[in-house]
Amino acid sequence: MASANPYKTYLNIWLLLMFLTFITVYAAEFDFGALNVPIALLIASVKAGVVALHFMHLKYEDSMTWVFAIYPLFLLFLLIAFSATDIFTRVAN
């Protein structure tokens, strides 16, 4: 929106996303053990972040929109943190 040449930015972002997709596929060739899922999630999160910032214009929005964008991530963290606390501290009978 506020960008001087939005089409150029969008093209660059698209190229970045294509590159990250390539990285995703390339990374899948290797077995990182326990890090397989975290690495895949990290790359996907970077892609989602870039889409939210540029294609969804979050970068140009006011602080209230940022609050609404960030808060669900906090809830997602809670969902994973509490469920994981259960799963990793469960004692089998």
Binding site: L75, L78, F82, T85, D86, I87, F88, T89, R90, V91
Partner: peptide, 18 residues
């Protein structure tokens, strides 16, 4: 309300700590 859901699950076998 987002932080208490596990109280529905006290007897489900979830961990003592949680």
């Amino acid at each position: 309300s987002f932080l208490v859901w596990g109280h529905h699950m006290f007897t489900s076998g979830q961990s003592k700590l949680i």
